[in-house]
Computed example of a mutant assay.
Amino acid sequence: MTARELILDAELRFSAADIVFGHGTENARDEAVFLVFHALGFPFDAKGPLLDQELTEVQRTAVEAIVTERISSRRPAAYLTNRMWFAGHEFYIDERVLVPRSPIAELIRARFEPWLVSERIYRILEIGTGSGCIAIATAIAMPNAVLDATENSVAALEVAAINLKHYPQLGSRLRFIQADLFPAEHTSYDLIIANPPYVPGDVAVSLPREYQHEPIVALEAGADGLKYLRRIIQYAPDHLSPDGAIIVDVGEMADIVDHKFSSVSFTWVDLEYGGEGVGIAYRHDFCN
């Protein structure tokens, strides 16, 4: 069999098994390509002859093992491969952290233009960094900025440290801090980025099996899903520079956020590449 034939076989099996996507891929074909290419050690831009050459028994066995594991365990592909891409960069991923998927990646790749003047962003805070992917991708995109990235989970910070080692050039501009949301020291930031847990408790326990492999503390946010965002909105103005802004990713909770928080006016970004619930509020959008 060839890689092309194994991709088709995996796609059909994933569809028949009714597995759930959304952890870096959106459909059975993309998931099949990701896992087959990984098992075979193919580059992800592989084309033509490489896809149509006859595979060895060892190669076929490797593909069968990972496809079977994906179906039987329902573990997201990123956990099976320990890799995922975010904002154009590859990161190490395991069950200590969420699989990167925030549409904030689109804003990072655009260097936050036109919402902010990138050359005027000197200090950035990311709240709840997890794997460190948002902080690292932002540091790469914003070479003139210094970043702090907070995380309360020691296990997650271990993963973030693994990822930072792959980008040693960022060491002097990016630091990971164990903290509950905001750093203990008071610093003024030109940009705060937050992708906090926002899944209501009753929804979190009923999520598909794929999501049950992720750390529940990185998903669940109390009865109303606003446990962390409530504190972020309360204290963000104290940490923003006069012309600063906060960008949040709250997924499908955007309407609820608008309804619940009259103290701040978010502008919700129309995302070109899909996703929802990414909003921006400037310091002057907060009621004093």
Rank of each mutant, 00 (worst) to 15 (best):
L170C: 07
H89I: 11
I104K: 14
L191K: 11
R60Y: 04
C287E: 08
P183G: 12
A218E: 13
F261Q: 03
G225D: 02
A155G: 01
F14C: 00
R4C: 00
L12P: 01
R120T: 15
G225P: 02
R101F: 08
V146D: 07
A236I: 05
D224T: 03
D52K: 14
I127M: 04
I232C: 03
E95C: 13
P103C: 10
A39V: 11
A110K: 12
L219N: 02
A245K: 10
H186M: 10
A236R: 05
P183V: 12
V248N: 04
P183C: 08
Q59T: 07
I140D: 05
A179P: 04
I134T: 07
E69C: 05
I136M: 06
T2G: 07
E5I: 00
A141R: 10
V203D: 07
I247G: 05
D18R: 15
A141I: 08
M253H: 11
E54S: 13
G222D: 01
S188A: 13
H259K: 15
Q59P: 13
A16D: 12
V146Y: 13
N27P: 00
R101N: 06
K227H: 06
Y198T: 05
A16V: 03
D255H: 15
F34L: 13
H239N: 11
L157T: 07
